[in-house]
């Protein structure tokens, strides 16, 4: 991948201001997204993964840092300047019941991207909409229905159709299958993969479910309390998770295997996720970490190369690495 990445994020910071204080939702994040790849973003509630996704496409205003899209710094563009870039940066949300306007027909909803960006004439748009509906595996007759006449899975297909209407280079998928039943979830995952093959889109796939991420992603970034604690190619992360939090997440996966063959090496972690308003000093995971050391409360670990394309922010891993 010699060409520069589709999306480069440097030192990105986004705080939410609440009556109780400042939430460190996205705290100095670095990230690259390459053409045609799927970057999985995994973490528990309050880790900032959704905020990161929305900040990347400027649905939230970043507090500092840079977002570079295809060589252009889009961090501080105005709404009007931003508009042409939105063709390339789209999003699919978690809740298909909230993400479609209940008062508008599917046709109206799917015409919006074309009208806003002046694609196709009024005569062409209806057939473009029907083509789009067919592309996500529904019958074109769905065009004249309202969202409430569709099932959850069908609505999510429409939301995906809206996101890919302008053939964007990047789609943020913010927990798009978490609200769906298992069998419907499989349909949507297959659809997302098929569309990637068809139009070469890159995904940033946000989820709390490591199985889904592991199935879809090429690289996986693990977030904890606003920071990336580990980022690595999928196989690398799956076979040798380095950060203690990643290890804990993996051991918490419940695998649908017969008990006789399921691995049984649960390293459960104690305690609750600390408040993102007042995260622990030093390493943020130290309060729940089974292998915390004195240094972990003094200095916050940097995200450093740990071999095999992995980067980890952990004193234990980084320390041994520099020694050996």
């Amino acid at each position: 991948m010699s060409e520069h990445p589709l999306l480069t994020v440097r030192n990105l910071v986004k705080y939410h201001h609440t009556p109780n204080g400042r939430v460190h939702a996205v705290d100095h994040i670095d990230l690259d997204l390459h053409r045609g790849e799927t970057l999985g973003l995994v973490g528990e509630s309050g880790c900032g993964k959704s905020t990161l996704g929305r900040t990347l496409i400027r649905l939230h205003e970043p507090d500092s840092g840079e977002i570079i899209h295809h060589g252009t710094d889009i961090t501080h563009l105005s709404r009007a300047q931003m508009r042409p870039f939105r063709r390339n940066l789209q999003i699919v949300f978690q809740d298909p019941f909230a993400s479609l306007n209940p008062r508008r027909t599917i046709r109206q909803i799917l015409s919006e991207p074309f009208s806003i960006h002046g694609v196709g004439s009024r005569i062409e748009q209806p057939s473009m909409v029907e083509l789009l509906i067919a592309k996500v595996g529904l019958h074109p007759s769905f065009a004249d229905r309202f969202p409430h006449e569709l099932s959850g899975g069908q609505r999510q297909r429409i939301a995906i159709a809206r996101a890919i209407a302008l053939e964007p280079s990047t789609v943020i998928c913010d927990e798009p299958v978490s609200a769906l039943d298992v069998s419907v979830q499989a349909q949507i995952i297959n659809l997302l993969r098929r569309l990637q093959d068809d139009i070469g889109v890159s995904y940033i796939f946000i989820s709390h479910d490591l199985s889904v991420i592991g199935y879809l992603a090429d690289r996986i970034a693990v977030m904890y309390l606003g920071e990336i604690v580990e980022i690595a190619p999928k196989a690398q992360l799956w076979n040798t998770p380095l950060h203690p939090y990643t290890q804990a997440l993996f051991s918490a996966i419940a695998v649908p295997e017969p008990p006789s063959v399921a691995r049984n090496n649960r390293v459960g972690i104690k305690g609750d996720i600390p408040s993102p308003i007042n995260p622990p000093g030093g390493c943020r995971f130290r309060t729940r970490c089974p292998v915390a050391m004195p240094i972990c409360s003094e200095a916050s670990p940097k995200l450093l190369e740990a071999g095999g394309g992995a980067k980890v922010a952990c004193h234990l891993v980084n320390g041994t690495n520099t020694v050996s």
């Binding site: 099932s151 298992v182 069998s183 979830q185 499989a186 349909q187 995952i189 297959n190 993969r193 098929r194 490591l210 199985s211 889904v212 991420i213 592991g214 199935y215 879809l216 999928k234 196989a235 799956w238 076979n239 695998v255 649908p256």
Partner: peptide, 28 residues
Amino acid sequence: AALLASVPRPDAIINGGRVEPLTEITGT
């Protein structure tokens, strides 16, 4: 059987295995 087959199972594909589409249950 279909329900079980529709659960994504990364272990099988992690080390270079081919990514097979998940089993879908058609209809509602």
